[in-house]
Simulated assay, not measured.
Amino acid sequence: MSLIDEPLPPPAAPAEAEKPAGTLRPASGARLVDPFGRHVTYLRVSVTDRCDLRCVYCMSEHMTFLPRRELLTLEELDRLCSAFVARGVRKLRLTGGEPLVRRDLMRLVASLSRHLACGTLDELTLTTNGTLLERFAAELAGHGVRRVNVSVDSLDPERFRTITRRGDLHQVLRGIEAARRAGLKVKINTVALKGVNEDEIVPMLEWAHGEGMDLTLIEVMPMGEIEPGRLDQYLPLPLVRERLAERFSLIDLAERTGGPARYVRVRETGGRLGFITPLTHNFCESCNRVRLTCTGRLYMCLGQEDAADLRAPLRSSASDELLMAAIDDAIARKPKGHDFVIDRRHTAPAVPRHMSVTGG
């Protein structure tokens, strides 16, 4: 089976379900506020659980992916995203798996761009492994995408292939260059892996900043069973920061980009460096996001298993009422924080699902 697949359409809906995408409007127009007073303004949407790589910290080498029939259609994803935009979500990020392997994804991007045009959405963006970015960068820019995050965990081709189990670094670098030519701002994401790429963090920083790109370092997250142990992979970022501070002047920044990273300015390079630390310093107190899977499950917290089924109310009625009620019920269950732990007493995953299910 090809990785680039469109799901089969769902069973035929009643005739009244032929409602144009994007017409959802809540009766009250109420914004989404969780039990702790946090406004939910950021939706991450996993458009597929499939990926053309098998990164050692993310997936098992021999993954079993969802049957196509279980995935939402692009039209259904559009309708769900539009429902959240109607409730005050200002940022949409498309993720995977690898989002660009989803067949006809540009059709969804083009449709969602209407929210940018009318001002109800501030940003439509994408996280990608970069393997298909050369092909799609210009089209993404044409639909109003202004920046993308690209995962690069090594600048050594052989090490990159080892970490991804099959990736071609040069293909990814061509994708990054195509994105920059298209006018997209690129941020590099690097997962810090103990004994694997920790010696590359300084070269990665110097390369990214030298090319005018931000760099964000990420701690491994205990999600899903994988072959190498997470304890063996885990590199605490406070330790990394201490090492960097011996060589660079790191100036704390108050600015945030809507995600979990905490940023510093590196005086010597002039570039910005982010740290995402779900284990050593979680970012839950300011969490403004929820995650939608390609099957219509809404996870209110990356590190918890509680999820809401939005596919059933989406498909059961053309009316907005059931869907909006399901969203309200889900946000009312958003927890205060996650339970990620990695140490010698907690070597099992905190949650059984792989990161590719919810996109990190």
Rank of each mutant, 00 (worst) to 15 (best):
E177Q: 15
V172C: 05
G144K: 11
T164Q: 00
E268K: 11
Q171Y: 05
M300G: 10
A330H: 03
A254P: 08
S2G: 07
R344C: 06
P313M: 14
P238Y: 08
P7S: 08
D214Q: 08
V266C: 08
P222I: 12
I176Y: 00
R353F: 11
V351Q: 03
R147P: 01
S154N: 03
E285F: 14
T131H: 07
R103K: 12
F36H: 14
G142C: 13
D252N: 04
L100Q: 05
Q171A: 14
R50A: 02
K334W: 01
L323I: 10
R38Y: 03
R146T: 14
I226K: 10
A141Q: 13
T293K: 10
R230N: 03
L132R: 13
H281V: 10
G210R: 04
H354F: 06
C55S: 09
H170N: 14
L66W: 07
R68M: 07
E18M: 10
T347Q: 07
T269F: 08
T95Y: 09
R247I: 14
L215Y: 03
L184Q: 05
H209A: 09
D309L: 04
F160D: 01
E285Y: 13
P26K: 14
K334T: 07
F65W: 14
T41Q: 11
R44V: 01
V264W: 09
R166K: 12
P313W: 13
L205W: 01
L72C: 10
E75R: 15
E75I: 11
G175K: 03
E61G: 09
R54F: 02
M106W: 07
R166E: 14
P313T: 11
P35S: 12
S249E: 15
H346R: 13
L132G: 15
A208T: 02
G270L: 02
T48W: 02
F136T: 15
E16S: 14
R174M: 10
P222G: 06
R161A: 11
N282E: 07
A350P: 01
N149W: 00
A15D: 12
E321N: 11
G175E: 04
L250G: 01
L105K: 02
H281A: 15
D214V: 00
H39I: 12
G224W: 00
G359S: 13
T48Y: 02
S46A: 12
E211T: 05
E177H: 10
R289V: 05
P238E: 09
P35H: 09
L231C: 00
